[in-house]
Design a binder for these strands. Structure first.
Lengths: 241, 241
DNA sequence: ACCTGAACACCGTTCAAGT
DNA sequence: ACCTGAACACCGTTCAAGT
């Protein structure tokens, strides 16, 4: 017996309604939670506040949602619905991979909290699957074998999520007053000669520039590192002789 | 006026001591917090529990630490002290980069919570700087220019942190009973043909195999994608004609 | 100056009733 | 069956005193 996924569960018949209160529903809960999340960040959202906004007590939420973690998963997938996968365009497959990931990044960066939530939550809803499907398709178009593509999609999505989350946490390396800047600026030339020498470089570049560069790194690396033995690997594996 | 970094602050003279209570200290607080973190995970650690273990009330902690976030930063840097940077060996620079990152990954994976903490905390203590310094050195040895290396180190460390955190959160893609496995196994061939076709591949590979593969991807990509215009870029930038 | 108990303003989750 | 107020067992942080 396996617990059913939260994405496919018997609907619940609300008993509220009429003129005073709109009926509760999983949808309404997710919508309100997402509103709070994107407006106030992860710490600014809570089950209790969602319940209060929906004019009920905290216990009522549990009729529609098992726990906070499940709510997170539902929220994330709802948000991922607006990621644009692009149609059949004339752009290169690389360009189209970039666009999908940029759209994904933009969705996560829409407000504080979403990216943070994405890092701690496994995205396995239908919309996450749609994104995975699309990226596999584009990589296939680029000649990446399925075995390699399967791992590559993981890598790409994880990286983008982490970058946006780091950034959204106010850890913007570019922020000149942040802890990062101060630490790097304060690194002594004696103890950390390279950090010191590279201090301007470490803090340079807009998020977009870094993102674009990172994608180039990934795609170049992926094309050159198939999982199946093949010509082109820069360094033969040499594990089993 | 800039607030001083928590890593360089006037020490506090404890007034406890004698036979009954060992004196409070920032060190003792960090040690106990780290013990709780690696034993019980991030959710299993709290300022109140640390205070209780140190035989005092929660308010006492605030004499040594500004807030929870600062404590997190101190804990992370303390943990990073045990990352092995390796000496001058005969191994390739690539191999040595791999070893440093593997050591970093192993330290974060030592117990639940540490990697999770690392994702939400900017690592800017002396030990984080040591690691950055070392990686810059190794990349330099590999012929990577400083401008490229500066961004590359960020990329590498962020990825490794994210992988370990994802893994430590029980989101192990390999776990056959996890939400990930169920979602992928349940992806219909009609709606998600490639996810369906790749379902075994998406779940395949030990964490170590994936890690090793990802590093190969990164290093191959980094070598091929210098930030300064140079021969070898697989696709000319063509932004300013 | 260090140290602390008590209070403040919150959490997620469960229980026991209501309809 | 849905819905809910109240209770339970927690949080981080601040205040106002103690030494």
């Amino acid at each position: 017996m396996v617990a059913p996924s939260p994405f496919q569960r018997r609907p619940v018949q609300s008993r509220r309604g009429g003129p005073t209160k709109s009926p509760l529903s999983r949808d309404a809960i997710v919508t309100e939670a997402l509103r709070q999340l994107t407006k106030f960040g992860l710490a600014g959202m809570s089950l209790r506040k969602v319940a209060a906004a929906l004019d009920t007590g905290p216990a009522s939420i549990y009729v529609y949602v098992d726990d906070l973690e499940e709510l997170y998963a539902l929220m994330l997938d709802r948000a991922l619905a607006s990621v644009e996968l692009g149609g059949a365009h004339k752009a290169t497959w690389r360009e189209r991979v970039r666009r999908v990931l940029e759209s994904y990044a933009r969705v996560l960066a829409a407000g504080p909290g979403l990216a943070e939530l994405a890092l701690g939550t496994v995205a396995v809803g239908p919309n996450a699957l749609r994104i995975t499907e699309r990226l596999l398709e584009l990589l296939e178009e680029g000649g990446v074998e399925l075995a390699t593509g399967a791992w590559a999609v993981d890598l790409l999505v994880l990286y983008v999520t982490a970058v946006v989350a780091e950034h959204a946490n106010g850890l913007d390396p570019a922020a000149p007053d942040g802890a990062v800047s101060r630490a790097i600026a304060g690194a002594s030339a004696r103890d950390y000669p390279r950090v010191h020498a590279a201090r301007a470089l470490l803090l340079s570049g807009s998020p977009e520039e870094r993102f674009t560069w990172a994608l180039d790194v990934f795609l170049a690396g992926i094309l050159q590192t198939p999982r199946t033995a093949r010509a082109g690997a820069s360094k033969p594996a040499k594990r089993k002789p």
